[in-house]
Design a protein around this nucleic acid. Sequence first.
DNA 1: GAGCCCAGCGAAATCGATTAAGTAGCAGCG
DNA 2: CGCTGCTACTTAATCGATTTCGCTGGGCTC
Lengths: 336, 336
Amino acid sequence: MVTITDISKACGVSRATVSKALNGAPDVSQETAARIRKTAAALGYLPNATARALKMGRSYNIGVLFSDETGGGISHEYFSQILESVKAESERLGYDITFISKDLGRMSMDYYEHAKYRSCDGVVIASADFQDPAIMRLAASEIPTVTLDYSFDNCSSILSDNVRGMEALVRFVRAKGHRKLAFIHGEMTSVTQKRLASFRRTCAELGVPVPADYIRPAVYHDPRSSGLATRALLALPDRPTCIFFPDDLSFLGGMSELEKHGLAIPKDMSVVGYDGIPLSQVLRPRLTTYRQGAERMGTEAARLLIEQIERPDTWLPQQITVEGELLEGSTVSDIG
Amino acid sequence: MVTITDISKACGVSRATVSKALNGAPDVSQETAARIRKTAAALGYLPNATARALKMGRSYNIGVLFSDETGGGISHEYFSQILESVKAESERLGYDITFISKDLGRMSMDYYEHAKYRSCDGVVIASADFQDPAIMRLAASEIPTVTLDYSFDNCSSILSDNVRGMEALVRFVRAKGHRKLAFIHGEMTSVTQKRLASFRRTCAELGVPVPADYIRPAVYHDPRSSGLATRALLALPDRPTCIFFPDDLSFLGGMSELEKHGLAIPKDMSVVGYDGIPLSQVLRPRLTTYRQGAERMGTEAARLLIEQIERPDTWLPQQITVEGELLEGSTVSDIG
DNA sequence: GAGCCCAGCGAAATCGATTAAGTAGCAGCG
DNA sequence: CGCTGCTACTTAATCGATTTCGCTGGGCTC
C-alpha cells in the first residue's frame, strides 16, 4: 500500500508537506505541490479513507436505514428507487453509503449505536414505524438525520404529498361520476392516516358519503390481504363502484379477486392504486394511480442531509414536500 | 465520545488491559475483566470501527458492486433480492456493506480503487458486463471477490443454473405439445449465451427445429423492447405457438402486444418468462416461469466471501450453483 | 545593518484502537 | 537462597493521515 510516507521519501519532503500539497493547502509552493502530485500519481497513491476518518472525525459515509421489520424493505420498488437515488446523489457529493441495522454479528446494538460505531456523518431514515424507540433515539441524537415520510422535531424530512395525492385521486374519480368510493388502507402508519384523512375530507368536500363499511384494512404490498378486503367489499349489499387500493401491488390482489367474480375492470368495477411504480404502467389495463416522486425524494434527502453535515452552523430543520403526479390509466370508467 | 482511555482511567488500568479485556484476551484476570466490562457498559462505551480498522487492516466491511451502467440496477427485483440477502447474511456474520461505484464526488476512481479507498475486506460483484476492464481489474486484484452469474479464474462465484433452468422450461413446454418455440433474448451477456445455448440444445435433443426467425433480440427488463420483438414474431408467416421471454418483466410488454392483436393467453399464444419474481405469481394469468434462487444466491455469496476473508489460507476458488425451480402458471396451453 | 515580515517547510501531537515486548510479583523447586 | 516460570499488567510502537505551531532564510524597510 502506498502511503504519504512513501511519497514523502520519494520527494524528499515531510509527510506534512505531502498531505498539505494533496489537499491544496496554501503554504506549499507551486513547484513542490506539482512534484508531489506527480509522484503520487506515479506511485499509484490512494488516500486511506479510514485513517482520514479517524483523524478528521468525518467519514464521508452516510448511513441508510430501512427498518427491516417487514423483512424485505429494499425489495419494494418504492424503497429501492429511494435507495438508488440516495446512492446516486450521495456519490455525486463524495459520500459513500452504508446500511444501518440492528445487531451486527454477535454484538447487539441499536440503530444509533450502529451509526456511531461506523462513524456515519449522517443517516437517512425510511421506516414503517417511526414510533420505534430505537428510531426515535437515533433521530433525537447528535447525528444529523433526514427522515422520509415522517417528521420529527428538529429533524429535516422529505415528505411525499399524501394529502394532495389522495385528494387528486378522489377528485378525478368523482369527476368521472363515481359516488360510491371504497377505500382499502394499509397498516395504520402516519402516512396511512394522512391518506385516509385526505380521502375522507375530500369526499366530504365533494358531498360524497363514506359508509363505514367502505373502509377496509389490509396490509401494504400484500396482494393476498387486499384480495380479501376486495372480497369483503364485493359481499356488501350495496357495492361501491370504485375501489381505492393502498398501493399498486395490492391492486393485483384485487384484480384477481374481481376476475374470480367475473367483474371486468373498469366496466364492472373501477379501481385506483397508489405509488405509480413502473409496473403499474405496463399492466393491462393501465392503472390509474398517483406517482410519488420517489427518485426526487431520495435525491432531496441526500442533498439535505449532506448540507446539514457540511454546514451545521447555518442549518435549520427543513421539511420538503415532493409533489407527485396523477397517472391516468384506464381503470376508472366514466359513468358521468 | 467514550474511548478505551476513559475506561482505563476509570478503572485505574492501562489502555492495553482494557482492549484486551474487551476482546477476551487470556492474560487478564477474571476480576479485572469483569470490572472493565462493567465500567464500559456503564459509560456507554462503543468501539470505534474506524480506529480498529486502521490498526488491524480489517474493516469488517464488504463492498457490493452493482454495475450502474444500466442506471438502475438496484430497482430490479432480482438485484434487490440479492442485495437484501447479501445484506442479511453479512450482518449476521458481523459485516457491514457499502456500495462500490466508479467516481466518488470529484475524485474519479475505478472500482478497485474505490474498494481499496474504503478498505473493504472483500467485494460481491454483480454486473451485466464482466468484460468491463474496471471489473476485471477488481476481480484480478488481491481483494477477495465473489462474482454472481459469471466465473473468473481464481475467483469464487455463485451461479444460477441457467442451463438447467432453460432446459426445464423447454421440456415443460414441449411436453404440453408445443413445437414452434420462439425465443426473445436480452443483451448478449454470458448469462444470455448460456440460456440461449441451453434452449437450442434442448430443442435439438427433443427434435424441435428452431428457425432463425424465431430468435429475437431485446433488452432485459424492458417491456417496450420485448413488445417490439413480440410484434415482429406475430408478423411472421408461420407464427410460433409459444414465446420465451427474457424475463418476467419483459413478459408484460409482450402481454400488451398480444392483447392489441386480440390474442388471449394461453388460448391463442403460450408464453413463459424467467426469474420467477413475486409479481409473476400474482398476475392473471399466473406466469409459467423459472425462479432463480436469488435470495440463496445472495446468502451464499456473502457466506463464501466472508469465509475467504477469514480463512485465506485454506481457501480455494469455488463455484456454487444455486438451483431454481419451475413455477407452473397458466400461460402455457396444452395442445398435446 | 538591525529588525520585521512572510513564504515555505518540518517536527510532533493526535485520532482510538491493537499488540509485541517487557516487567513486576509471587510460587515452586533444588 | 537463587533461579525458573507463571500470571497479570504496563510500555510503547504502530496503523495513515491531518494540523498546529515553530523554524528558517530571504527580502524589505527605515
